[in-house]
C-alpha cells in the first residue's frame, strides 16, 4: 500500500508513545543505570563500568542457565511446531464440533501461568497425581523432585500442553484462508495428500508460522511461573531457567548491579536471536524476488 508522507501522524502515535515510554523506557534506563554502578545504599554508589557485565558473562552458573534455556526453547519449538501444524490439519472445520474443539484447544492458553504450574504439580505428584501415580504403578520410579530427567521431561510436556494450541490456532486460521478452488485444482491435478500439504497448505502457513515461531521462542525464553511452581528450578538447578535466575538475584539477593547487567545481556540475547531469525526469513523471501529479476 502506498502510504502518505505526513508527520502529523506523530500526534496519533503520541499517547501510545508516552505510555510505552513510561512502562518501558524509564525502567530500562534504570536498569542501564544500575548495570554500571555498585549500589550499597541510597546514597553510596560507585561507577563500575563494564565490570558487572564481565562478571556475569564469566559466571558458570549463568552460562549453564543460558545453555539450559536454549536447549529448552529449541526442544519445545521442535515439538510444538510440527505438532501444532498436525493438529490444525485434523481439526474439524465446520459444525458444532469445530466450535467445541476450538474452545477446548484454546483453553490452556487462558489459564494463568502459575495455575498451569499448579495443575501439572497436582497431576504429576507421585501420591495424588494421576500421571505420577500411574507411572509409578507401571513400575517406573517417576520422581520430579529427585530425577533431573523426569523434571525436564515433565516441564517440556507441560509446555507442549500449554503452548501447542497457539501454533495450532495460528495454523488453523491460516488454513482457513485457502480458497476451496486450490483443493479442487489439486484433486484435478491428481496431487497426493502430501503434495497438497507441501505445495498448497505449507506455503500458505509460512506467514503464520513465522509469527508462531517468533512468539514461541520469545515466550519460552522468558518462561518463569510454570517451572517455578512445578519444580522450583530443581532438582538442584537442573530446571532453573534465565528468568528464575534473574528473579532470584534481583529480588531474593538484592544484587542490583549484577542483576541489571544480567538483565541487559538477557534482553540482548532475545533481541539478537529474534533479529537473526527475522532477517533470515526476510532474506529467503527476498532471494525469491532477486531470482526473478
Amino acid at each position: 500500500m502506498n502510504k502518505v508522507y505526513n508527520n502529523r501522524a506523530w500526534w496519533l502515535i503520541l499517547p501510545m508513545l508516552l505510555l510505552v515510554a513510561f512502562s518501558a523506557v524509564i525502567p530500562l534506563m534504570t536498569v542501564v543505570n544500575y548495570s554500571v554502578q555498585d549500589v550499597f545504599d541510597a546514597n553510596t554508589r560507585f561507577f563500575t563500568g563494564t565490570e558487572w557485565f564481565e562478571v556475569m558473562l564469566n559466571d558458570p552458573a549463568l552460562q549453564a542457565a543460558v545453555l539450559r534455556q536454549f536447549a529448552f526453547s529449541l526442544t519445545v519449538l521442535a515439538i510444538e511446531v510440527p505438532l501444532g501444524i498436525g493438529i490444525a490439519l485434523i481439526m474439524p472445520k465446520k459444525g458444532w464440533q469445530a466450535s467445541a474443539v476450538l474452545i477446548l484447544v484454546t483453553m490452556p492458553l487462558l489459564i494463568p501461568w502459575n495455575v498451569v504450574g499448579s495443575i501439572w504439580q497436582i497431576f504429576t505428584r507421585g501420591d495424588i497425581g494421576l500421571m505420577g501415580w500411574s507411572l509409578r504403578e507401571l513400575g517406573y520410579g517417576y520422581n520430579i523432585t529427585s530425577s533431573p530427567v523426569d523434571a525436564w521431561a515433565t516441564i517440556i510436556l507441560m509446555d507442549v500442553w500449554h503452548w501447542t494450541p497457539l501454533i495450532a490456532l495460528l495454523c488453523f486460521s491460516g488454513l482457513r484462508s485457502i480458497p476451496d478452488a486450490y483443493y479442487q485444482a489439486a484433486r484435478i491435478d491428481r496431487a497426493s495428500k502430501w503434495a497438497v500439504f507441501r505445495y498448497i497448505q505449507l506455503p500458505k502457513l509460512t506467514n503464520v508460522l513465522v509469527i508462531g515461531v517468533l512468539l514461541r521462542f520469545m515466550h519460552s525464553f522468558m518462561i518463569y511461573a510454570e517451572p517455578f511452581v512445578l519444580t522450583g528450578g530443581g532438582p538442584g538447578s537442573s530446571t532453573t531457567f534465565l528468568s528464575q535466575s534473574l528473579t532470584t538475584m534481583a529480588i531474593g539477593q538484592q544484587d542490583l548491579g549484577p542483576s541489571a547487567a544480567f538483565s541487559l545481556i538477557y534482553f540482548l540475547i532475545i533481541l539478537l536471536v529474534t533479529w537473526v531469525f527475522y532477517t533470515a526469513i526476510m532474506n529467503m523471501q527476498k532471494d525469491d524476488k532477486i531470482q526473478e529479476a
Binding site: A24, P27, L28, T30, V31, Y34, M218, F221, M222, Y224, L242, S243, Q244, L246, T247, A250, I251, L256, S259, A260, S263, L264, Y266, F267, I270, L271, T274
Partner: peptide, 9 residues
C-alpha cells in the same frame, strides 16, 4: 521481547 523479569526491580 523484553522479559518481565528484567523490568521487575
Amino acid at each position: 521481547m523484553a522479559p518481565p523479569a528484567v523490568f521487575l526491580l
